[in-house]
Write a protein that binds this DNA or RNA. Structure first.
Lengths: 265, 265
DNA sequence: TGCGCAAAACGAAAGCAAATGAAAGTATGC
DNA sequence: GCATACTTTCATTTGCTTTCGTTTTGCGCA
């Protein structure tokens, strides 16, 4: 029974309780919530509408679902492991393989994204590295696991990507001589190369690629042949693609033809 | 029964009792409190309004709720929680007073430090503000509480201050036209002005002061006549000093002579 | 597949009681 | 006297419900 308190609650308490339930179960239904809190469905819908407005959830017919980027920076940092759920073992394996490419005295750039951040705990062994990033979750992970030098690119904070973007970020990036870039992506295929969701993100990733001597793409097999909205770069710009064994053979062939080495973990 | 004392109490006693009950239960209701203390609902509402001003609780329709313990993950990374403890009620009151100076469309710069970060939850009311900061805990708090534009200054991450410093941070700062700066300090007195612990921090704060049209110093009374190591700026560079009522009268006199207005909360 | 229909969910509007803020009034104390 | 603490009064707002007409969904049937 997930029904400990059917009693009379204030509005915010009810909304907090809805959020909590949503966080636990992933979905909530208007009908159930109305019954559970002994209020009308109209009230529940108003609650959901208000919280959708704040970006805390996404409504759909019959109820609401959890928004993927997590509730806030707070949970996006703390609830990271639980959240990224699917493919998380593959992602960690890919990240571990990527970390093995890092050499002492490297200056590495780590992109925002759930895969690349997983590299951080695997970097404890490498001496005297400098990590540059525009992602706050990467910064938090570095702060928690490593003692190395950490440089943050500034810029306008984007909640959806939990990273900084825009002209300030681009300019800051231009100052560094990066030895290796570890890049994530929303989608990639042979025809369009890497694609992503917004122009700002795409612009940032392009600048990252241009600023780096060696580019590693960390992309689990689920990203293959998914079509993103905005083109980031052709596959030829990438030097290494790291993915998992579920990546089809034809994909591997297509990638190698386009240029990058392909490393399957 | 949570009703040990239905007897006649002074205002402050009643308010303390309300706070205590709030701390225990998480929520209190105007109707119940009025009954419990045998006063009118108007009086209770006045109590709650006064305590909300000081940041001790958050009002809502029908009553009030506890303000979140504000545990924003990033603070747990930087060992900030322990430092937070001391004088935290004063700090929040100072922060609440500082937040009242913010106007719609302001571009405000918030310094790293335990006091200034407390401002964030009080900024929900102000429309269309832009927050610039070099402090990761401020960024986390903004992400958790506000929907406004947030700009991060990049730079080399300093673990002790949990903020970014160095040439990149200084350069990023030079791009902005800041309307108000909310600054913390390690120590201040009449002779040396503001003082701090490292040259990097001092340099950053000096640049912040120079970049801002109006400078607010948030310093609880415990900072007065503590001697910091590095000079940051004379008191004359600051326009407003916000502190608590434990600041001695001679300090207030000295501050006013040096230039700044003095606001005691 | 595609179509049609009933149940469910939805948004907008109207109504109601509780809660609220502002203003004016009443004790009590220095 | 003035100040403080509290109260009553009253118009307004808030949170919630009911009602009603519309849209969406699931399911049976071809």
């Amino acid at each position: 029974m997930p029904t400990p308190l059917p009693q009379d609650l204030s509005t915010t308490q009810r909304r907090d309780a809805i959020l909590e339930q949503l966080q636990r179960q992933g979905v909530v239904r208007v009908r159930d919530l109305a019954k559970h809190f002994a209020v009308s469905t109209v009230t529940v819908r108003a609650d959901l509408a208000a919280m959708e407005e704040e970006g805390l959830l996404r409504r759909e017919h019959g109820g609401a679902v959890r928004t993927l980027p997590g509730r806030t920076l707070l949970t996006s940092l703390s609830g990271m492991e639980e959240r990224q759920g699917l493919n998380s073992t593959q992602k960690r394996a890919i990240a571990a393989a990527a970390a093995r490419h890092v050499r002492p005295r490297d200056i590495i750039l780590i992109d925002a994204g759930t895969t690349a951040v997983e590299m951080v705990p695997f970097l404890t062994e490498v001496d005297d590295i400098t990590i540059v990033t525009n992602a706050l979750n990467v910064a938090a992970a570095v702060g928690a696991h490593l003692r190395c030098r950490l440089i943050l690119l500034g810029g306008t904070y984007s909640r959806t990507s939990s990273s900084t973007l825009g002209p300030q970020a681009l300019h800051a990036l231009s100052e560094f001589n990066i030895s290796r870039l570890f890049l994530g992506t929303q989608a990639f295929d042979a025809a369009s190369g890497l694609t992503d969701t917004t122009t700002e993100i795409a612009q940032m990733k392009r600048a990252m690629i241009d600023a780096s001597r060696e580019v590693y793409l960390l992309a689990d097999s689920s990203k293959w042949e998914k079509a993103g909205f905005i083109k980031v770069a052709p596959l030829g710009k990438v030097h290494h693609v790291l993915s998992d064994s579920a990546l089809p053979a034809c994909a591997i062939r297509a990638i190698k033809e386009a240029g990058p080495r392909c490393e399957i973990v």
